[in-house]
Design a protein around this nucleic acid. Structure first.
Lengths: 305, 305
DNA sequence: ACGAGCCCCAGGATCTGCCTAGGAGTGTGA
DNA sequence: TCACACTCCTAGGCAGATCCTGGGGCTCGT
């Protein structure tokens, strides 16, 4: 079977015109190189050197082999270099899961942070939805992510909370936001909710469902839309009220619903923003980096509330 | 240390998304592939797969490695293919030593014979001079050759005579070629000899020197030129006589010296055309081919004399 | 002719590659 | 919910590869 080691010995021998010289250059004893050349000759089925008293002389078959051997070794070297540089975060791709409000608050800044420290890398910030990200993590396609979770409890996942994100009530009707909204009032509200596709698993819904359990009523949304921006815009037009994380108020209300106001729930409700990865996994440097940077950004943003 | 075997296991694992699948495809047991992957990860200094219950999932570093691994394996494959095809004489170069009259008689035909049987090969028919060719053989730069030798006796060289080539006297003066030329007459002749540079070692000179030893005189050439063609032309102009192999008479006299005639020496003298290679060497298929073809050509040409 | 240089062979220590067998974790289906 | 199927890992052992040292033979240059 052909091996890189054989090719290395071959090239060194070709260049030195001598097994002894090749062995010296490679740091081996002469019989070792001799044996490699012999096994190479056996695997290609042709003599590569004529043994001629003083040294060895390449045959025309060896002339034929040489450029190929060089190409092969160069390719192997490139492979090693590429992977090592990727492992050192000089090149390659960094993939990180980030969903919803976390991305809304800190996505662009996080990418900027990474590119500043590691100018050569590609960055992938993936995740359509918290539970989809969770699934990717379970399947191993994602190494780590920052997502919103209703609470900190899972089986095989290591969940590290980094910030709380208050869920607040927003409305274009000043009366609706004049005082904190109780479960009673909430259950009678006309709401627009985002994340239509993932309604059952969306962390905000889960929190609300838990809150409303006390009243014995199920939370009912009047309108379902896919993205938060649309929901906020509908609130701005007075067509419905909504429940959104506190950060969204700062980010989107001035722009999309300038007429709307907000107020806390009573009791206050929170989403938890957490770092999640498979339990028991040793994290790569890339993942550790992303976790550190994302945590710093999110903490900086949420600590002012 | 990186190895092709590791890369093969890596690619198979990458494609199957499973060590078991890769092992099945490669015909190994699963722990063997597992070990190869582990050692590859150690040598590149990064994790390549996340072990995730059911199967394994490539990391971004693995994504980076994959194309390089493919290139490396392809290059190794090309190397093997190139060398094997060269060994089968489908491609590559065939080098053969052939000097002087042998080449003059059969060079072009020999090349044609080789190209007909092996259309893909390059042919090198090398050799300025018998003794230079001999030297190349000693140094191993040539594997085998057909050359003119004064006699069959050497130390480390295997010399196989294939034909005799009579040395004859040529002259533009009909009287000079009216009857066989004895050593006496020869010693008084005014001769032009070829192979000026190699005079001392030229096989024709050695034969003549031996012939003239009986007369107690040294052979003296009046004119020294480099190539046989020039010598023959000078004979044609009547400026000198010469001694050339019998075949040269047929090849060159009609064209270069139509007025000249020829006659044998007395006693007749011969050059020996022989196949020469290092004693004790096992010959490559290419060399055996050239020896066979060259011998056939030379025998066919000389047997009519 | 003799010594230096180079290659091959032989024998032995170590390492690598591969296998089988058994154990642990995960996901699917009854 | 439990069990089975699937996958990976570890452990231990065997065969072959790799590499070394020491010794012999050949060639070449002095």
């Amino acid at each position: 079977m052909l091996s890189l080691h054989q090719l290395r010995c071959f090239l060194s021998t070709y260049e030195h015109g001598s097994l002894t010289g090749a062995a010296d250059a490679l740091g081996y004893a002469q019989p070792s190189v001799s044996e490699q050349i012999r096994s190479l000759e056996r695997s290609v089925g042709a003599q590569l050197f004529r043994r001629v008293g003083r040294g060895v002389v390449p045959t025309t078959v060896a002339d034929e082999l040489r450029p190929h051997a060089e190409r092969t070794l160069a390719a192997a070297d490139d492979a090693l270099r590429a992977v090592r540089s990727a492992a050192r975060l000089e090149t390659g791709t960094i993939r990180f899961g980030m969903f919803g409000t976390a991305r809304l608050y800190a996505g662009a800044d996080l990418v900027a942070d990474v590119l500043e420290r590691h100018p050569g890398v590609r960055v992938e910030l993936v995740g359509q939805n918290s539970s989809e990200v969770f699934d990717e993590l379970r399947r191993g396609r994602l190494e780590a992510a920052m997502i919103a979770v209703p609470s900190v409890s899972t089986d095989a996942m290591a969940v590290t909370p980094v910030a709380r994100d208050e869920l607040v009530y927003i409305s274009a009707d000043p009366e609706h936001v004049a005082s904190p909204v109780t479960a009673q009032r909430l259950s009678r509200a006309s709401l627009v909710m985002a994340e239509a596709t993932w309604a059952a698993e969306d962390s905000t819904r889960i929190v609300l469902r838990r809150m409303l359990q006390e009243t014995g009523r199920n939370p009912v949304s009047r309108i379902e839309v896919e993205d938060v921006e649309t929901a906020v815009e509908l609130v701005g037009r007075g067509l419905a009220d909504s429940i959104v994380p506190r950060g969204v108020v700062d980010q989107l209300l001035p722009r999309l619903a300038p007429a709307a106001g907000w107020v806390s729930l009573r009791p206050r409700q929170y989403d938890t923003l957490a770092i999640v990865h498979r339990a028991g996994a040793t994290l790569s440097p890339a993942a550790r980096l992303m976790i550190e940077l994302a945590t710093a950004r999110i903490v900086a943003l949420t600590e002012k509330y």
